[in-house]
Simulated assay, not measured.
Amino acid sequence: MPPVFRFAPSPNGYLHLGHAFSALLNADLALASGGRLLLRIEDIDRTRCRPEFEQAIYEDLAWLGIAWDGEVRRQSDHLEVYREAVARLSAKGLIYPAFESRAEIARLVADKETVAPWPRDPDGAPHYPGIGKQLSAEKRAELIAAGVPYALRLDMAAALALAGELSWQEFGCGPEGETGSIAARPEAWGDVIIARKETPTSYHLSVVIDDALQGVTEVVRGADLFWSTSVHRLLQHLLGLPAPVYRHHDLVRDAEGRKLSKSTGATGLRELRAAGVSPLDIRTMVGLAAAV
């Protein structure tokens, strides 16, 4: 079977050079291997994702000369699939509702760090320090019935007890040059969020389900997601999903060495196009050779 690649942007802003690099690299690898390239729109964040950004993705990819195979998968069209996965994890006793707000969690962490450093995940966010796991079933039901917002978190200790040791095959490299067989360390993330009251999924959950349902065999994405793969391998194991191989690539950075980001106003491809930059110029700017 030919390999299957995917490009999976979120329509919460305009694509920039970092997105162009990842999209072009996926397209180049698919072409060179005789494989397929799929397009997925990761639009579960309904507060930030907008139709005009999604339309701009299609326009930018067409301008770059990137074509994809089959229909576009939009995550917002498949929320019931994610709900079913949450129900499966819940039936295994692996998730619980946590009711603290972000501000409350920040205060709890600050209190704990007056005594000793509190563990943080690879992205620098503190592990969940609340009491959600200790609440009784009756108290949880009472809070939910009262309409209190909540996040569904993975009981990491229980999940690891079921899964044991996990690894993935890395054909790119990690932050420290890691490659080959990589030992997964999902415990580094603490009790990660699997879904929320208002959104029946999360990035971690939806990405592993989508990759499996779309038959993705090669995940090519930025090195900033390298250690997220640990959580993805754990969820794949718990849900009985196949594991693709991974290729994490270097990030395109600005003059100050920061990764390009929509939130920091990185120059969009549409602006570069309006300024007269060509698709070949884009390839040169991100360090890719001209397409064959």
Rank of each mutant, 00 (worst) to 15 (best):
73 R>S: 07
268 G>D: 04
87 A>N: 06
284 T>H: 15
164 G>Y: 05
245 V>F: 09
252 V>A: 06
259 K>H: 09
181 S>C: 15
79 L>F: 15
285 M>Q: 09
109 V>D: 09
44 I>G: 04
250 D>Y: 05
71 E>C: 00
53 F>Q: 02
211 D>Y: 13
18 G>A: 13
139 K>T: 09
202 S>D: 02
114 T>F: 07
141 A>I: 02
170 E>T: 07
49 C>T: 09
89 L>C: 01
134 Q>D: 15
8 A>D: 05
4 V>F: 06
39 L>S: 11
52 E>I: 09
283 R>M: 08
51 P>W: 13
189 W>R: 00
291 A>S: 14
114 T>H: 10
171 F>Q: 14
213 L>D: 11
211 D>A: 05
130 G>Y: 08
195 A>Q: 03
211 D>F: 10
1 M>S: 14
82 Y>M: 01
100 E>V: 00
43 D>M: 07
195 A>N: 08
199 T>E: 05
64 L>C: 12
167 S>Q: 01
56 A>T: 01
178 E>Q: 13
213 L>Y: 04
155 D>Q: 08
42 E>P: 00
122 P>C: 05
165 E>H: 11
198 E>K: 12
269 L>T: 10
149 P>E: 03
229 T>D: 01
242 P>Q: 02
20 A>V: 10
281 D>Y: 02
10 S>G: 12
38 L>Y: 05
35 G>W: 05
72 V>S: 12
265 G>M: 10
16 H>W: 10
147 G>E: 06
44 I>S: 02
83 R>L: 06
237 H>K: 14
85 A>H: 05
257 G>F: 07
30 A>E: 05
43 D>Q: 07
195 A>G: 03
73 R>M: 09
254 D>G: 11
68 W>A: 09
44 I>P: 03
54 E>M: 11
224 D>P: 02
122 P>D: 10
120 R>P: 02
60 D>N: 14
130 G>L: 01
111 D>G: 12
86 V>R: 02
14 Y>N: 08
95 I>V: 15
230 S>D: 04
18 G>Q: 06
42 E>K: 04
94 L>R: 06
76 S>G: 06
208 V>N: 00
212 A>P: 00
17 L>T: 04
115 V>T: 11
238 L>R: 00
17 L>G: 03
267 T>I: 15
15 L>F: 08
106 A>L: 12
226 F>G: 00
63 W>R: 09
234 L>S: 01
171 F>T: 13
59 E>G: 02
248 H>R: 10
269 L>S: 12
287 G>E: 05
108 L>F: 03
192 V>I: 15
4 V>T: 12
190 G>E: 12
172 G>Y: 07
117 P>M: 07
